[in-house]
């Protein structure tokens, strides 16, 4: 059997933000990864490392001060080469997004079912009556009594709002779902329920998911592949098994050491002293260098390329130089 084509293939994605006339913040640099059909990819890293920016870059939802380059192939089409009008047809119909806080992601003055219905009707998937029926089914699927769809978002609890958001994301049967920390705003019990729901849905509907999270436990449980970001660059990517059992990059190793208390309220990790670099004044060498326990001279001056270390397992560190010279294959 031949290897399936990736659903989404991000290549050399670079995102800059114009901070003021001469200063640019380099939020993403040369980010590449693949998402295969029916898979869940975990995107992990400290706060501010560019996880949300990655998702918003792919969907092209960033503000006008952003500058994007690279390619984002979705089913073979480079999304970055489309016009805004063409891009709109892809949004939600093919690529849906669940936000960090469902609190404000739903419009407070529109009924929940109207907001779901809107997505279906917008993409002209079915006539209104049938669409209403579908809204009922969707609400039912995520565990909300369909008649509660007549209510407004503020009448929902936090968990219900996130469920409604998931129902909305599924409205057009997208082939890829982005979930940006879908549970951070919720309390622990509800978090587990919502994650369970996501897992369920993936099984039932067979879509691919890119899950952004702080929580390595969640990654272990839900994901097939993991992409570790640091300071806007991919430092390591591979299967869950590879990452958890043979992490190659010093950052990933530290990250796993600090687990399970990775889901820390403060933005920096307890076990790794120091803070991530400022995006407007990045070090010329390895971005992790100031905090790295294994750094050596070369790290200061030269940025390590992403190397293949095993089958579909990549890491960016000078220490891995001897392993397998495969920079640029991805």
């Amino acid at each position: 059997m031949t290897e399936p084509e990736p659903l989404l293939s991000v290549r050399h994605l670079t995102t800059l933000f114009e901070v003021n006339r001469k200063t640019y913040a380099c939020a993403l640099e040369d980010v590449s990864f693949d998402v295969y059909p029916y898979q869940t990819v975990g995107l992990v890293g400290e706060s501010g490392c560019g996880k949300s920016t990655t998702l918003l870059s792919i969907l092209r939802l960033l503000p006008p001060n952003a500058r994007l380059s690279g390619q984002v192939f979705f089913k073979g089409v480079d999304l970055l080469s489309l016009s805004e009008q063409q891009m709109r047809a892809y949004r939600w119909k093919e690529l849906a997004l669940i936000f960090q806080s469902a609190m404000n992601a739903l419009n407070p003055v529109l009924r929940v079912d109207e907001q779901i219905l809107e997505a279906i009707l917008l993409h002209r998937l079915m006539p209104r009556e049938q669409a209403r029926q579908r809204v009922h089914e969707l609400l039912d699927l995520v565990g909300i009594a369909p008649q509660r769809g007549r209510q407004y978002p503020f009448q929902f609890s936090g968990g219900m709002r996130q469920r409604a958001m998931i129902a909305m994301a599924l409205a057009c049967s997208p082939s890829l779902l982005f979930a940006d920390e879908p549970t951070t705003a919720l309390d622990v019990m509800i978090q587990a329920q919502v994650l369970e729901l996501l897992k369920d849905i993936q099984k039932k509907l067979g879509l691919a998911i890119v899950l952004v999270t702080h929580d390595l436990g969640v990654v272990a449980e839900l994901c097939d592949q993991v992409v570790v970001l640091y300071g806007g660059k991919v430092v390591e990517s591979g299967s869950v098994d590879q990452i958890y059992n043979s992490p190659q990059h010093p950052y990933t190793q530290k990250l796993l050491e600090s687990f399970p208390d990775l889901h820390h309220p403060s933005s920096t990790l307890a076990s790794i002293p120091g803070t991530p670099p400022r995006l407007t004044e990045l070090p010329p060498g390895c971005r992790f260098e100031p905090r790295c326990f294994a750094r050596f001279d070369r790290c200061r001056h030269e940025a390590p390329p992403l190397r293949q270390v095993a089958e579909k397992h990549y890491a960016a560190c000078h220490l891995l130089e001897g392993k397998s010279p495969n920079a640029g294959s991805i």
Binding site: L59, L61, R88, A89, Y90, R91, W92, K93, A96, L97, F99, S101, M103, N104, A105, L106, N107, P108, E118, A119, L122, H123
Partner: peptide, 10 residues
């Protein structure tokens, strides 16, 4: 945020 949601909806 809900405006960004609306934009993401297409």
């Amino acid at each position: 945020d809900y405006i960004l949601t609306a934009k993401a909806k297409g």
